[in-house]
Design a protein around this nucleic acid. Sequence first.
RNA 1: GCGCCUGUAGCUCAGAGGAUAGAGCGCGGGAUUCCUAAUCCCGGUGCCGCAGGUUCGAUUCCUGCCAGGCGCACCA
Length: 636
Amino acid sequence: MKYLQKDLSAKLVDLLKKDFQLKPEDIQFSIPPDRRFGDLSTTIPFVIAKRTEQKPFLIGEKIIKKIRKTFDFFLDIKLAGGGFVNFYFKKNFLLSYLIENLNHISPEKNQKVIVEHTSINPNKSAHIGHLRNACLGDTLTRGLRYLGYGVEVQNYIDDTGVQVADVVWGLLQYRKMNIQQIKGQDNLASYLWDLYSDVHRMVEEKSEITQQIREVLKRIELKKNPEFEMSRFISNTVLENHIRLMESVGIRYNLLVRESDIIELEFFELASKILKEKKVMYPSEDPVKEGCWVIKYNRENIEKIIIRSDHTITYIGKDIAYALWKVGLLGKDFFYQSFYEYPDSEKLYITGTGSHSESPAFGNARQIYNVIGKRQSYLQNIISQVLGSLDNGQLGKHFIHFSYEMVSLTSRCVQDMGFEISERDKAKPFVDVSGRKGIAVKAEELIKKLTDKSLEEVRLRNPGLDDESADQIARDIAIGALRYFMIKFNSNSVIAFDFQDALSFEGDSGPYLQYTLVRLNSILKKMGDQLVDPDIKELDMELLNEKESGIFYEILLQVSQMDLQIEFAIESKELSVITSYTYSLCQKFNHYYHLFPIISEQRLDIKKLRLSLILLIKKKLEVLFGIIGIPIPERM
RNA sequence: GCGCCUGUAGCUCAGAGGAUAGAGCGCGGGAUUCCUAAUCCCGGUGCCGCAGGUUCGAUUCCUGCCAGGCGCACCA
């Protein structure tokens, strides 16, 4: 359908360019709110009227006269509402077009894309905010792959920062544990979750602890044991915990990039050379910043420090080096090792500094998406500007901040979880998630609650179902609910998290979508032998009565928009477009389902017609579920 | 102070300059001899934050104001 609209647009330009100087960008199709206004609508007369200062209606009349007879798949083309040109399809045309293109796949685009997402500090369990990031990143990845892009998924691991030092100090000096005890600790990530917030409370009370942690950090940097060994063990163990958690909800990565390797391989030395050569980075003349190397940040017309006066690098510097590697401009590469193997033996690699194992080529992409919270916009803008200044702006445009807002908790939710909150926080509609204060919902906790609740529902509805199947279905439903929930909000709206909303399996939710497809599949299963591929030539929508024909046709129109919607979602970086589209499609189908039976329909020709619709929707829903990451349960 | 974002139904949110502004939740009522009732149908509520501007047409774009959120260290 996407191609139909594109072809149509090209043909219209061809027909009208002589008389009206029509350009492709003048044509915008939309589906009118009411079928009386046709199936597709354009505003060409308004666009031309603006340019030529003529009446839109008169221009419309001329256009209609010109194009009316040209297309054999339109029943009619009419002018309405003072200047809308409305197209009416021959109904059977649309149906057969959609069925013929059922298995169409987007042609492979010869362009590599990197998506960086998740990037959780490896010092404690993941929380719901991280889930939002990973779900957005993964759906972005799946969407890009659907559109034909080759996508490399990277997960950046900050294994060097103070946050790891915080827990190392906590384990050694506060809990007095040795490395053996730490290695024996059950669910280390979760244990560190509590420890991390304890440490932060203590830091606020006693300032000398900050100094001690700084010492620990220094020892880690100098590779002194036991601190160094411990920090390595912690970041690896917690990292693996995160990888498995994400895998359990269907999220995979291709490469883990460790910050310690960026430092060890001195990526910044090279980056620095490039920046100096291009005069993007220069010594500041500001007396306050004496001895510092800076870049000019245009948006605010200020100097940002990249190299401090003590010659150490700021985090902007490290990020610029990593960004340059991503776009293939650094001129140096990591070494790679296998870190983990997924059940189908797909490998996950991690960067390293010394030994080389066989691996695919990483990095060096033309288009980069960084899925990072909106709070990082400032930094992302700076990096994008720096990249842009290296090649006249092009690179900056392809270095894309895929931004989203935070997940916060409703104050009711925070209180239900047993935290005490200040009067100030109580007055606010929601409370910020804070790993430091421990005020957050752990990802594993949310997933467990979702799974428990869906298991309860499955048991209720399917008495006698064996344990294994029930567990599997419960997990599928939990994942569906979670992933839908994380995508359905606009990315720049703050999610005010509440268990009550997140655990809802009715209405605008993942399980609603799953239920739709499960029932649809169940019809097909029950049809058994009667199931035949509908012959396009036999299908005739004239067989349907007016009511059914109307609803049937509404669904066809909606189905026809799928690829355009997916493209729009990716282009506008607004993935909720995909969830709302899917939801609306399911709503329409459920409505139809209730009114018109398939299996018990006596007339074979009508039955085949309905079957063709079912097969169409099944196919589309499978694609959409695949992109959102919603599993398809056997039954519900 | 500078920069970014948000304001739509009681609540949570969709609305890509277009025709009568929509969903879910909640509340009230109804539907199961029939493909799964996690479903479907019926019911009410809107100064689309306010004021200007651009436009044939503004919830949507621009400007100003009001209200709220976030970011702006020689921290990471």
